[in-house]
Design a protein around this nucleic acid. Structure first.
Lengths: 149, 149
DNA sequence: CTGCATGCAAAACTTTTGCAAAGTG
DNA sequence: CACTTTGCAAAAGTTTTGCATGCAG
């Protein structure tokens, strides 16, 4: 529980509630907890992780189907990133810090985040050159980390 | 069947056979056909696609388990890229043309390839800065293509 | 109250694996 | 021949879905 954002959880949650009610959807404690776990987690969590962590940290049961439906919903309203690090499971993280990309160790599966303004800039240009309306992007660099080679 | 490489299929196949025999593995007609389909395809194929296309184009049955085992093998010997465009299926392409990345339309799922030297360069630096031995990378830009917005 | 959200269990998919049989070098 | 590879079917794992019930606005 030590992730640092430009925004407190309270502010984030308030904005979120406003946002979904504007869209005509209903909030629920399940959504709150999924959001909370994602907000405070330093990891990239799978749906299973999310459900387990909510149980572990808050002793609340959120069905796995609900987690899947919720992350899909979060994805549709564009507040979440999903990434597959190569093991056929989707992992999720909130899109609240500045955009970043990932370095993944192919041996120990450690994930390191990085960001690079120049690459961000280039990506915008590439989208523009191809007449794409840029929505999102993922970049994963695979390699062997320091400890593994 | 109009993909253009720096190498003919015959040359490619010969190199491949040499390569795997050096590694102590055996070739098979199944591997040949999987390679052939991938070599001549303009698309990013799923395992299912590969099996179906071999049946359709050459009327040869290659079990889906064999396709999965083979693409995994190809991945281990580093001659294939796999990518998940967001639909929980892996798609494969040979690593024979110069490296490129992908623009994916979130509406019609069209895939456009691009490459950018500057980004490639930056990626190398990022790996180096983090003491990673760079092996591979994937970058996907998601957006709405020209036809879809 | 209306209708979206949830939970459960079943279903749908994709991918992996065990084992006997076949094929390669 | 020895040993890898294949095919089949079963298993495993992830994600989706139908439906009755619950809950938010």
């Amino acid at each position: 529980m030590n992730k640092k954002y430009s925004m407190s959880y309270e502010t984030f949650l308030k904005n979120f509630k406003l946002h979904i009610s504007k869209l005509g959807f209903k909030n629920s404690i399940q959504k709150d907890y999924i959001l909370k776990i994602l907000f405070f987690s330093d990891e990239h969590l799978t749906a299973e992780d999310i459900s387990n962590n909510i149980k572990k940290e808050y002793n609340i049961d959120v069905g796995i189907a609900t987690v899947y439906r919720t992350v899909k919903f979060f994805d549709e309203i564009n507040i979440i990133n999903s990434l597959d690090v190569g093991d056929n499971v989707k992992r999720y993280e909130l899109k609240i810090s500045e955009h970043h990309d990932h370095l993944v160790c192919t041996s120990c599966h450690k994930i390191i985040e990085f960001s690079d303004d120049l690459i961000e800039e280039k990506q915008k240009n590439i989208a523009k050159d191809n007449n794409f309306e840029l929505k999102n992007h993922t970049m994963i660099i695979y390699g062997l980390c320091e400890d593994c080679h």
